[in-house]
Simulated scan of single mutants.
Amino acid sequence: MTEVLPEGFQVDLSIEAGDWPTKEELEPLAVRAIGAAFASANLQVLKHTEVSLLFTDDTAIRKLNGQWRNKDKPTNVLSFPGSDPKGDAYGPLLGDIVFGYETISLEAKEMGVEFSDHISHLTVHGLLHLFDYDHQESDEAELMESLEKTILASIDIDDPYADSPLVGDGE
């Protein structure tokens, strides 16, 4: 499957803190995961929409989690939606997705998955939150998890929920 981003879609990727791979290594992972989400999930954006990905450490994401969710602990990923949708299409500022290095690294080890696969999964997970998908109620969680599994399977990543309750605690 070829993952194609919508026309003019921009991924603004920054590394702030943490022992992350380089931007040149992270960007193709992110673009592949985001492209797969657009190809598999019928997500609609306006032309020239942008998403921001911030890769940081647990200290920074803990502060954000406390400030925005009143949870004084680090987490794997947080999503901050941007502009309201215009009908079914989102954008031009889709939002921000923030990743916490130490938590993600530990989860990948505990789950026995490749670090890159876990980053790809959390990118999809965070992106779906920007499109108003959620997992607070069981029916919402089932829908979101099913969509994540379909998207990840399209890029040859195994079901992240098969043996683990770890994903999705942060957003």
Rank of each mutant, 00 (worst) to 15 (best):
A17S: 14
Q44V: 03
I97P: 03
E107S: 14
S154G: 02
P74K: 02
D57E: 06
A41H: 05
D12V: 09
K47R: 07
G168S: 05
G100T: 10
L143G: 00
T150W: 00
D12A: 09
L5K: 07
S146H: 01
P165H: 03
P81N: 03
L106N: 12
D57A: 09
D132E: 11
V124T: 15
D57C: 07
E24K: 15
P6N: 01
L53P: 05
D163A: 11
L106S: 13
H118G: 10
F115W: 11
D163Y: 06
G8K: 13
H129M: 05
L78D: 08
G170S: 05
K71A: 04
T123L: 08
V167Y: 14
E142P: 01
K63Q: 06
R32L: 10
V51Q: 12
E171A: 05
D134P: 10
V77L: 07
D57R: 12
T49F: 01
A41L: 02
P85R: 03
L127S: 00
E142R: 00
E110W: 01
S14K: 15
L29I: 07
L166C: 04
V124S: 11
P74R: 04
H48Y: 13
L46F: 05
G100Y: 03
H48R: 12
A36E: 05
L122I: 02
T56G: 12
D169E: 15
A60Q: 12
P160R: 03
K73Y: 08
N70L: 13
N70Y: 09
N42F: 11
